[in-house]
Design a protein around this nucleic acid. Structure first.
Ligand SMILES: [Mn+2]
Ligand SMILES: [Mn+2]
Ligand SMILES: [Mn+2]
Ligand SMILES: [Mn+2]
Lengths: 221, 221
DNA sequence: TTATGATGTTAAGCATGCTTAACTTTGTCT
DNA sequence: AGACAAAGTTAAGCATGCTTAACATCATAA
């Protein structure tokens, strides 16, 4: 029912709210969607009018029940497409996000249900995010923390990666930092919060900004 | 590069031109796309400016080389998706056109090439229309005539069906009039040009408007 | 050949989703 | 508290792709 733009707004608001539980700010969405703050302010009014958002000026936004339902629908489409493109059509880890970003707006419920069935009703997408089920319920995610919050000297396994920048994805794929791989956190510079990690075959230094995108669980020894 | 609207305009112009070789009229496109004539006139000017059309007022439209290239691209996406949805995801004959009508605008060249490869580089879609190859070349179609031009007393096999109305498609599927099936043309009323056909299991009367959508080849006995 | 209806085009206006520029509110630091 | 910068909002305007209404051209038949 909503337009393509509105679907992307609603999805983005959900994702930010899901990160920290706080009302989502205008600037965050503007930055993510690469439009100006004023576009967000205007759209927020419309989405609130249409019942998708709770919004009061200067106070940020929260999805209503109805908005959350839309968000689940779009995330379901996005994440099932990502998995399908990798599993069935052989696209690579770093290509699927951009394709899914478009396909998520052109897929009927009946088609996405067929894809879900074809894949065997998977619970997680290729980057470790949970796939909303047909009933709108989001599978429980394994406990994980961002690499920025980890302790030097420990080993971790990759649980989830924020896939929204495909250049970053291509880099992580290249160095072998993919889902389920192990890493050892060997150092952190307090100068810039950059970290040093050991993967299977080599050692890499990652900036704080990169480390923020990577979510891990403590390795069970 | 063109917008979704423009892609649909260009595709529609190609299809009409392909039918009879004449310059395509404003009304035909307006009728097909369910917009007013004035929307077509305006868009024709823009598409001509952008180099996709030859167009002079009151004289109809023809695609340029550049317009034809776009048309091939969109038809390729549309028809490969239709086949893929049927072959891989199990959608039915009458469902795929509407899905493909949306997906054709959200599919990168690299993704559609993967689909093409997955299907084994097919030459025809599920309704008998040729699928443009990666190089933009349209496979040669088997010689066929509309059911309206057939002779009473002969047998024919179904070569192609115009799939743009999904209610009609569902009806044809229901009565077993699908690709490659045989029919015997037993009667024609000159009163309304309706025809009577015998399929494997039963006899049906089809209006002229329906018969126009069905293309057949004389059965080799 | 001229009237007439069908077909096609233009003009004005609207909704959507953006922009920039001007203005308002908020949070923070002194 | 007061000042200042950051964040957010509003106003005005633009492009796209439609609409309706008015106007232009075409085809054709008396
Ligand atoms: Mn993604
Ligand atoms: Mn999207
Ligand atoms: Mn079709
Ligand atoms: Mn389309």
């Amino acid at each position: 029912m909503p337009t393509i733009s509105k679907e992307d707004y609603i999805k983005t608001i959900f994702n930010f709210h899901n990160e920290d539980g706080l009302p989502v700010t205008t600037s965050k969405i503007a930055n993510k969607l690469e439009v100006t703050n004023s576009a967000i302010s205007e759209m927020a009014k419309k989405l609130a009018m249409e019942g998708y958002l709770d919004y009061s000026k200067y106070k940020g936004m929260n999805l209503t029940r109805s908005g959350e339902k839309v968000a689940m629908q779009i995330l379901r489409r996005h994440r099932l497409w990502e998995l399908f493109l990798i599993e069935v059509l052989g696209l690579s880890w770093d290509e699927v996000h951009d394709e899914a970003e478009k396909l998520e707006h052109s897929t009927s419920d009946s088609l996405i249900d067929k894809i879900d069935e074809y894949l065997g009703f998977p619970k997680f997408d290729p980057h470790g995010s949970p796939i909303p089920q047909r009933n709108g319920i989001l599978p429980k995610i394994p406990k994980s923390i961002p690499l920025t919050d980890c302790e030097v000297g420990n080993s971790y396994s990759i649980v989830r990666v924020n896939d929204s920048d495909n250049e970053l994805m291509a880099y992580l794929l290249k160095i072998g930092l993919v889902l389920s791989s192990s890493l050892f956190l060997s150092d952190r510079l307090s100068f810039d919060n950059s970290i040093t990690i050991k993967l299977a075959d080599a050692t890499y230094s990652l900036s704080e900004k990169v480390a923020e995108q990577i979510f891990v669980a403590e390795e069970i020894l």
